[in-house]
């Protein structure tokens, strides 16, 4: 055991414990507090894993997401649920025991795993052919681009489904105007735009890329929605829908051109490979941001009294 694991083990333990407390506590604010600390620890974990760029994304995301959580938690009427304490704990305890037992078996198996290097060597060997130098981006947009395409499809479908189910739900209600939140939003959003641009660029060579960039941009958008400075992508407007599915559509179109261009679905001609990947990533960044903003707007609208079944 070295100094590193001296930090890592308590860190991992505390993260698990906080995650448990965040969902087990009876009080929404207490849960939100645990969640915030969990966010801080996650930043730490990324630092420990040697990925300061991801830590930046985490710091940005932590802010926006906890904002949403708090909003939901605080807007809810004071919970008076006596029913919750009767009968449920037994099932909960049973579940906890089952989860612990399952976890123990998993740990036992993981400790006995042989030392395989997975596909690292193969990735390193073939990476130059993709034109990007980050193995993560290479896997996400070249080697396993098909998985990524389907995942983006899941995201776009989730938004479309939410729109379909929400029907004519009211638009999200902003938090009451607050000078602090207002000032915070006006300062942090431009920074978010900058950081998102950076993460997109970084995706070519190190941890980062469309998913992180899109998340940061999306969180900036969410903050604007929360403060009432801006609305989410509108399902009734053409451009709102285009923002949400645009990334998926472009990815799909380029992928389907593959058999003609390079002899296989989702194959890129080698001379354009890196540019196509960056183009797809740029479109994905914007679409992921639009999807996140839409989902949050839907959740907020679903919390409104009189709203239909949303989310």
């Amino acid at each position: 055991m070295n100094a590193g694991s001296l930090v890592d083990i308590p860190l991992a333990g505390m993260m698990v414990w906080l995650a448990w407390r965040a969902q087990a506590g009876p009080e929404p604010i207490g849960a939100a507090l645990c969640f915030i600390v969990l966010g801080l620890l996650t930043i730490l974990a990324w630092l420990r894993l040697g990925a300061p760029d991801v830590a930046i994304a985490e710091a940005a995301v932590g802010t926006g997401l906890t904002g949403v959580l708090l909003l939901e938690a605080l807007a809810a009427p004071r919970p008076e649920r006596p029913g919750r304490s009767t009968g449920v704990p037994a099932a909960r305890r049973l579940l906890a025991v089952a989860a612990l037992a399952g976890g123990a078996v998993l740990v036992a198996v993981l400790l006995r795993l042989p030392e395989t290097s997975g596909l690292h060597a193969a990735v390193r060997e073939r990476l130059p052919a993709t034109g990007v130098s980050s193995p993560v981006t290479g896997v996400l947009l070249a080697f396993r681009a098909y998985d990524t395409l389907l995942e983006i499809g899941v995201l776009a479908l989730a938004v479309a489904a939410g729109w379909g189910l929400a029907g004519e739900a009211p638009r999200p209600r902003p938090m009451s105007r607050d000078p602090v939140l207002d000032a915070f939003a006006r300062r942090i959003v431009p920074l978010g735009v900058l950081v998102a641009g950076y993460l997109w660029w970084a995706g070519g060579s190190r941890p980062g890329g469309a998913f992180q960039a899109g998340t940061v941009l999306g969180v900036a958008w969410v903050i604007l929605i929360l403060t009432g400075l801006e609305e989410g992508p509108s399902p009734t407007r053409w451009h709102g829908r285009a923002l949400v599915v645009g990334g998926f559509a472009l990815f799909l179109a380029i992928g389907l051109a593959g058999p003609a261009m390079a002899g296989a679905l989702l194959a890129f001609p080698s001379e354009w490979s890196v540019n196509l990947i960056l183009l797809i990533e740029a479109a994905l960044t914007i679409s992921i941001a639009a999807c996140l903003a839409s989902l949050v707007a839907l959740l907020m609208a679903a919390g409104e009294p009189g709203a239909g079944a949303g989310g």
Partner: peptide, 27 residues
Amino acid sequence: IALKLLVVWVAALAASATVALLIGRAM
């Protein structure tokens, strides 16, 4: 790298102060 980490820290600081203000106001 050190400057980058400083950015991370300042962001987290600003975020937690905002969150504190929000929770405080709500309470």
